[in-house]
Design a protein around this nucleic acid. Structure first.
Lengths: 124, 124
DNA sequence: CAGGATCCCAGAGGATACTG
DNA sequence: CAGTATCCTCTGGGATCCTG
C-alpha cells in the first residue's frame, strides 16, 4: 500500500477539489450511522459473533446489522468465518487488514469527538 | 442518541464504548453527505457567497445548502457575515477557528479516500 | 442575489415476528 | 444462535417556484 503524497504541495483549487472528492469517496463507503462503529468493535474484539456484536453496538437491529455486515464484507472490511464443525454452527466476524487502514481515520474522529464533547460542556 | 450505559460490562467493552461514543459524537455533528464538504470548501476559500458555494459543491440544492449552513453556524463551524452597506446586500460565509480543529479528520479522510480509490482500481 | 416555502420521494433504519 | 421477512416510519435530500 504505497501512497506517496506531496505534503509540501501548495493549496490550490486543484488540490481543493481533489480533497473534496477524496473525502466524498471515503464518506461513501464508511459513511452512515453504523459502519465505522461496527469496524471499531470488530477491531477491538478479535473475533465476535453476531448476537454479541448486536449487544455491543447498542441500538442496532438485527436487520440493519445483517445488512451492514454484508456491505462491509463486500468492501473488504470484514471477514465472515463459519465454523461448520460445531452444532449449532458458529459464525464469527473478524476485521481484515484492509479495515485496519482506517485506523488514522478512526483515531482522528475519536480524538475530535472527545474534545468536541468537552467544548460542548463548556458552552453551558 | 445513546441513552444506555452498561456499568456492569467488562473493561474491554468499556474501553471500546469510549472510542465508540466519541466517534459517534463526531459523526453526529459532522456526519451526513454535505457538512464536511462545505467545511472543506469554506476553509480553502477564505470567504465565499451563497451561490458561489452552491456552484462549488456540485449537486447540492439551495434548500439543503441553506439548512446545512444554519446547522453548521449553530455548531460554530461557520460564520455568516452580512454586509448591509451594499445593495443588494452581500452575504458571505467564512470558516471559524473551531472548524479548523477538524483538519486532522479531514486529512485522514482525504488520505484514506485517495488510497481507497487506488485500491478499487486495482481490483479490476 | 440569498434564500424561503412546498411538495415529494427513495432509502436508511426501527419493530416485531419468524425460521433452520 | 444467526440471521430473514415484513412492515412501517422518518428524514435527508431533490425539484420547483417564490420573494425581499
Amino acid at each position: 500500500m504505497d501512497n506517496t503524497v506531496a505534503l509540501e504541495e501548495p493549496i490550490t483549487a486543484q488540490r481543493c477539489s481533489e480533497n473534496l472528492s477524496s473525502v466524498e469517496d471515503a464518506i461513501y463507503v464508511i459513511g452512515g450511522k453504523w459502519k465505522l462503529k461496527i469496524i471499531i468493535v470488530l477491531q477491538e474484539n478479535g473475533n465476535i459473533r453476531f448476537n454479541e456484536l448486536q449487544r455491543t453496538i447498542k441500538g442496532i437491529s438485527a436487520r440493519v446489522l445483517s445488512n451492514e455486515l454484508k456491505d462491509l464484507e463486500l468492501n473488504g472490511f470484514v471477514k465472515r468465518v463459519v465454523h461448520t464443525e460445531q452444532t449449532p454452527i458458529v459464525v464469527e466476524y473478524i476485521s481484515t487488514d484492509y479495515s485496519r487502514t482506517l485506523k488514522p481515520v478512526i483515531m482522528a474522529l475519536s480524538q475530535w469527538g472527545r474534545t468536541h464533547k468537552l467544548k460542548i460542556k463548556e458552552d453551558f
